Simulated scan of single mutants.
Amino acid sequence: MSAESTLSRRLLLTSTTAATGGVCALALAGCAPSGTSGSSSATSPLAIPTTGTPTRVGKLADVPVGTTATGTAGSQNIVIFRASETEVVAYTDICTHAGCQIAPSGTNFKCPCHGSVFKGADGTVVTGPAKKALPRFAAAIDGDWITVSV
C-alpha cells in the first residue's frame, strides 16, 4: 500500500469523532422546543381578546404613577400598573407558571407560590420559574377612573 491511500489511526479517529459529534448535535437540536424561545415569549405579553364594555376598576388617584394595584373587572381579578399620568396597563392576576394568584410588589407583581416576578410596566418575567409574560387586558384612563375591558 502507498502512503497516500493509507488512513492513519489518528486521522480515522479524528474523522469519526467529528462525525459522531455532529450527529449528536443534530439529535439534541431535535429535542429543543419548537416555536419561540422562552426569552422572546417573556418579552411579548399576549393581549387577551376583549369584547366587553370597559368597567371601572378603581380611582386614578388611588394608583400613583409608577405603582401597582389590584382590581376586579366583572368577575375577573386583575393587576394594574400606572405607567404615566396618561397610561395604565392591566394584566390577569394568574401566574403563568403554576396558576397562583399574583400580587403587587412595588413596581412589579410577585407570585407567592414559587417566587416569579413580573415587570409592572409590560408584564414580562423578571425572575422565574415563570417563562411567559402575563396576558394583558385593554385598560384606559376615563376621567378620574381606571377602566378595564374583559
Results as ranks from 00 to 15, higher is better:
M1G: 14
A3F: 12
E4P: 00
E4T: 13
E4G: 01
E4H: 08
T6F: 14
R9S: 13
R10S: 12
L13T: 11
S15Q: 03
T16D: 01
T16L: 15
T16P: 00
T16S: 10
T17F: 09
A18K: 01
A18F: 09
A19T: 10
G22T: 14
C24D: 01
A27G: 10
L28F: 10
L28V: 04
L28R: 04
A32F: 12
G35K: 04
T36Q: 13
S37M: 08
S41L: 11
T43L: 13
P49Q: 06
P54R: 06
T55S: 12
R56V: 15
R56C: 05
V57M: 07
L60T: 04
G66C: 10
T67A: 10
A69K: 11
A69Y: 01
G71C: 06
G71N: 00
Q76E: 12
N77L: 03
R82E: 07
A83L: 11
V88G: 04
A90D: 06
Y91N: 08
T92K: 07
D93R: 11
I94F: 01
A98V: 04
G99W: 09
Q101Y: 04
A103I: 10
P104N: 06
N108A: 14
N108R: 14
K110F: 11
K110W: 03
S116W: 09
V117N: 07
V117D: 00
F118H: 07
K119N: 15
G123E: 09
K132A: 13
P135E: 05
A140G: 15
D142A: 13
D142G: 07
D144T: 13
W145Y: 11
V148E: 08
S149H: 04
